[in-house]
Write a protein that binds this DNA or RNA. Structure first.
Lengths: 215, 215
DNA sequence: GAAAAAATGGGACATTTGTCCCAACCTCAC
DNA sequence: GTGAGGTTGGGACAAATGTCCCATTTTTTC
């Protein structure tokens, strides 16, 4: 649910010499709520997130947001646009303070054509995200929201990252009202621990329910 | 809505010599309904569709299908799995008779690391599909089915390709019943021409309606 | 060309989800 | 501290969508 890519981060931090970085690769910090990338604009840099949590989202004309994914340590941002030479399809917003490496688009374009290792890492990252995106689009369309929500809660239960319900609902593509309603029903069926926002899951009941969807 | 990639097809057909192709690149044909790739299995070849129409779909545990995309001339199939070294996430089924180039996975892996042109075409294709997939997931979640359906009908109206309603509904992630119901309402509002399955669109009414969604 | 299988069209009803609304908390800036 | 704005929780109702079903029509198969 939160995409990370330790290999790419490590490439930037360990494989590039100071001379190579010069003024083409540098660190920048955004406060929570800051925009790293804006939908519709072109950008001068490709980013590799070093610390913090951000969201990749699309704001539709009717004002509603869809969250494509959450990004953690190491994930690339803005590389699609460089490859396609298109303006950004998405906005990336910092949810906590975010620190990221900024790589000028020119240098990034140079690197992916001249450095086999980064080229390989990029292909793997794109393939992985394409799979994730397709798989998620599929089950969010095919199953009721409850199912997607359970999958999400199962992941959240292992994290302490504080997401707002607004963001979780946007990720699932449902309204906050629906999110709350489903959560309430899961509490009443003792699948989620009743303590308000602590999303502890009753593993047995959870497994049973997930099996129900698969037949 | 139907992905094509003339550049990749042209690369395979024009850039590779007969000596290079040998027994590593050859043509194969599937009848309508045949499976080019099966979800969960590994595959020995990467395919480049030459003629015909196919669908990339995911069958969920509950038996429902979600169509990730339709493929036309030139699009790559099975390359994600080679890059990721994973079994197929999707099934690819021929909708009409399909002819495709088959490239052994070993040779394909060799090509993308040793041929800069194919590597570039692959990056562009992946980036493009990632954008398409994200954009579609977004508006299918954020807008009512009617909106996605209108976008789809607008494309269909320019084609003569005969899709079944089952496939169109699977693509939109709704039941056939819902698809029919929405279609009926659009007919009643004179946005779609009343003649049954001929999806002629009243362009003026269509544009007006699409604008309504954007505010 | 007849039988079987698949696709179409839609009624009736149940379920899911959204919209609108209000109330109770937080929290952050001044 | 206090007031504005955001977050949470949920009631009431409307709208969208799914399920089940049956009657036709079309396509496929032998």
């Amino acid at each position: 649910m939160i995409h990370t890519n330790r290999a790419i981060l490590s490439f930037i931090e360990d494989q590039l010499t100071e001379a190579e970085k010069k003024d083409r690769v540098f660190l920048q910090t955004w406060p929570a709520g800051g925009h790293i990338l804006r939908q519709g604009q072109g950008n001068k840099y490709v980013f590799v997130q070093r610390t913090g949590l951000s969201k990749v989202h699309i704001t539709e004309d009717n004002g509603k947001d869809f969250i494509v994914q959450f990004l953690g340590e190491g994930e690339l941002m803005g590389e699609i646009e460089v490859i396609q030479k298109n303006p950004n399809l998405t906005t990336i917003t910092a949810l906590t303070e975010v620190t990221a490496w900024c790589i000028t688009t020119d240098y990034f374009a140079y690197l992916i054509t001249h450095n086999a290792e980064l080229n390989r890492l990029l292909l793997i990252s794109l393939a992985h995200r394409l799979n994730q995106t397709s798989a998620r689009a599929s089950y969010q369309q095919v199953y009721p929201a409850e199912y997607a929500m359970l999958k999400l809660l199962a992941v959240l239960a292992t994290l302490e990252t504080p997401f707002t319900k607004r963001d979780l609902a946007d990720y699932l593509g449902v309204s906050v009202r629906s999110f709350n309603r489903t959560l309430k029903q899961l509490r009443e069926r003792s699948i989620v621990h009743p303590d308000s926002f602590d999303l502890y899951i009753n593993r047995d009941a959870f497994e049973r329910l997930m099996r129900e969807y698969g037949e």
